[in-house]
C-alpha cells in the first residue's frame, strides 16, 4: 500500500513534535533581546522541577512574557489550522476557513458584545468574551451554511465566499455601531479589536489547551468520516456515515476552536486556509494524516509569523494578523485562480 494512505508512524509524530519544540524554543530565545538557548532551557527546566534559578538569567522575560505568548501562539496555530482542515473536508471546499466564511467576524461580534455589555464569568478573565465568541462563531457558521445551502445546494465555492464576505461586512458594521455607543468601554474594545497575542498569559494558554483537547479529540476521531464527506455527502451517507451527527460534531468543534482563538488574540486570518492547503500538497488529502500534520504545521507557521512580527521592524512590532493576512491573501488568490482554471 502507498505510504500516503497509511496513518503516520510514531517516528513521524516524534519528528514533527521535536521540530515544533525546536521552533518554540527558538521563538522564546529570539526577540528584541536575544537570550542564549542554554539560559532558556535552564530557566524552564528549573521552574518545572521547582529548583532555584541562577542569578543573571532573564527569568521574567522568559517565564512571564515570551513563554506564555509563544505557547498561546502555538496553540492558536494548532486550533485554527485543525478547524480549517476539518471545514475544508466537510464542505469539500479548499477555500473554507474561519476568516473566508465570516465565522471569525461572527466570533469577534460575540466577544465585543460581551465586553460592551459587561458579560463576565466569575473567576475567568475574558470568560464572558470567550463564551460569547464560541457561541457566535457557531451561530454564524450555521447561518452562513444554511443561507448558502438555500441559494445553492452544491455549496459552491463562489456562493460560500460571497456569503462569507457579506456576513463579514454585516458583522463589522454591527461592531462599528457598538463601538460608537460603547462610551467608556471604547478603549478596552479598541484594544481588543486590534487583535494581538502580545499580552497572552498562562490562563489564555490553558483555555486554548482545554478547548483544543476537547474539540481536537472530536475532530481527530472523525477523520474517516471527514474522508467520506470530502468525497461527497451523498456517497458518505451510502457507505454508512451518520452525516447529520458528524456535521454537527465538526461544526461545534470548529466553532469552539475559532471562538476561543478569536477571544484570546482577535482575528488572525487565513491560518486555517493556508496550512491545510500546504499540508495537503505534502501528505495528501487523507484526513488521518492531514489533520495531525496540519496541527503541527499550524503551530510552526504561527510561531514563525509571530517571531517575524517581533524582529523584522524591531523595536516596532508588526501585529501577527497582518503577517498571516499578507501570506494568506496571496495563497488565497493562488488557490482561487487554480481552482477556476481547473474547471
Amino acid at each position: 500500500m502507498d505510504r500516503r494512505k497509511r496513518p503516520f508512524r510514531w517516528t513521524a509524530y516524534a519528528l514533527m513534535l521535536l521540530s515544533t519544540i525546536a521552533i518554540l524554543l527558538l521563538c522564546v530565545c529570539m526577540g528584541s533581546v536575544n537570550i542564549p538557548l542554554a539560559d532558556t532551557l535552564t530557566v524552564i527546566w528549573n521552574t518545572l522541577w521547582g529548583r532555584p534559578i541562577p542569578q543573571g538569567m532573564s527569568r521574567s522575560i522568559i517565564l512571564l512574557v515570551r513563554l506564555p505568548r509563544v505557547l498561546s501562539v502555538a496553540l492558536c496555530g494548532v486550533s485554527l489550522s485543525l478547524s480549517g482542515a476539518a471545514m475544508q473536508g466537510l464542505l469539500r471546499n479548499p477555500l473554507a476557513d474561519g476568516s473566508t466564511l465570516g465565522v471569525s467576524s461572527g466570533a469577534s461580534l460575540g466577544a465585543i458584545l460581551a465586553i460592551a455589555f459587561g458579560l463576565t464569568i466569575p473567576g475567568v478573565s475574558y470568560g464572558g468574551a470567550m463564551a460569547m465568541a464560541m457561541l457566535f462563531a457557531f451561530l454564524s457558521l450555521v447561518f452562513i451554511l444554511t443561507f448558502a445551502y438555500r441559494l445553492d445546494h452544491s455549496l459552491a465555492t463562489n456562493t460560500i465566499i460571497l456569503i462569507g464576505v457579506i456576513f463579514t461586512m454585516f458583522a463589522h458594521s454591527i461592531i462599528s455601531l457598538i463601538i460608537t455607543f460603547s462610551g467608556d468601554k471604547v478603549k478596552s474594545i479598541m484594544f481588543w479589536t486590534m487583535g494581538s497575542l502580545a499580552g497572552s498569559n498562562y490562563q489564555n494558554a490553558l483555555a486554548l489547551l482545554i478547548t483544543l483537547v476537547l474539540c481536537g479529540a472530536l475532530i481527530l476521531s472523525s477523520s474517516r468520516e471527514l474522508n467520506a464527506l470530502a468525497i461527497g455527502e451523498d456517497n458518505a451517507r451510502y457507505i454508512g456515515v451518520d452525516v447529520k451527527r458528524v456535521k454537527l460534531r465538526i461544526l461545534i468543534a470548529s466553532s469552539a476552536l475559532i471562538g476561543v482563538c478569536v477571544s484570546v488574540g482577535g482575528t488572525i486570518g487565513f491560518v486555517g486556509l493556508v496550512i491545510p492547503h500546504m499540508t495537503r500538497m505534502l501528505v495528501g488529502p487523507n484526513h488521518r494524516r492531514l489533520l495531525t500534520a496540519s496541527m503541527f504545521g499550524g503551530a510552526v507557521f504561527l510561531m514563525l509569523a509571530d517571531l517575524a512580527g517581533r524582529v523584522l521592524l524591531s523595536p516596532l512590532e508588526i501585529p501577527i494578523g497582518v503577517i498571516t493576512s499578507l501570506i494568506g491573501s496571496a495563497v488565497f488568490v493562488y488557490i482561487f485562480y487554480h481552482t477556476r482554471k481547473a474547471r
Binding site: 469539500r92 474517516r224 470530502a230 468525497i231 461527497g232 457507505i239 488529502p285
Partner: peptide
C-alpha cells in the same frame, strides 16, 4: 464530484466504512 486528490484505493477502501 471528487474535489481532492484521493487515490482510487482510498475511495474504494471507504466502502468498508
Amino acid at each position: 464530484q471528487v474535489n481532492y486528490a484521493f487515490t482510487v484505493e482510498e475511495v474504494v477502501t471507504l466502502g468498508r466504512f
